[in-house]
């Protein structure tokens, strides 16, 4: 907790928190980039579940550079939002729920990209049952990540470690 107080009192954290333009540009980057990360995943998972079966499955990988770039933006803006209000997120279990959901979803992505999506034999039609199950789970995890992200703004126990309550 002393560490969080120290971080909150640094000039950089104070600026991130108190400058409207700094804080809101971070929020905007975080939201737009998260929209792209989740968007590409939603499309890929829908395709795996049998929607738009004429899309060659292996070619969906060509959209993933969009995910990696936006994931970088999400992480960077996320860290900066954390620097602005470290105690607000780190003392809230919902934050770890969000982080867990994102990491689990990305593990699924990794296994799909290196597995079923690499094999052109699965280009046409429906994906194998296991891949469809993973796609459904991925959708649930991304919805969980979005929901816990939104709830972070409503469930925090403290805003700042340096002036509590």
């Amino acid at each position: 907790m002393e560490y969080l107080v120290w971080l909150e009192e640094t000039a950089f954290s104070t600026w991130m928190r108190e400058s409207g333009p700094a804080f809101f540009s971070n929020l905007i980057f975080h939201s737009v980039a998260m929209g792209f990360v989740v968007g590409v995943h939603v499309a890929t998972n829908l395709r795996l579940l049998g929607v738009a079966p004429r899309i060659p499955l292996s070619l969906m990988r060509r959209f993933f550079p969009v995910v990696w770039v936006n994931l970088f933006v999400v992480s960077l803006s996320g860290v900066l939002l954390l620097v602005a209000y470290p105690a607000k997120a780190l003392t809230n279990p919902v934050f770890y729920l969000k982080l867990g959901a994102v990491l689990a979803a990305l593990c699924i992505t990794r296994s799909l990209i290196h597995g079923v999506m690499r094999d052109p034999a699965h280009d046409a039609g429906c994906a194998p049952t296991k891949a469809r199950a993973l796609a459904a789970l991925s959708l649930v995890l991304w919805i969980g990540a979005i929901t816990s992200g939104r709830f972070l703004a409503y469930t925090h126990q403290m805003m700042m470690a340096s002036h509590q309550n």
């Binding site: 998260m34 829908l46 991304w142 919805i143 979005i146 929901t147 992200g149 709830f151 409503y154």
Partner: peptide, 22 residues
Amino acid sequence: GWPIVESLHFLGLSLLIGTVGL
């Protein structure tokens, strides 16, 4: 109420980006 509807709003936005955006 408010955060539930916000979460749905973000899900809708992701659907739009993932389909029309791609």
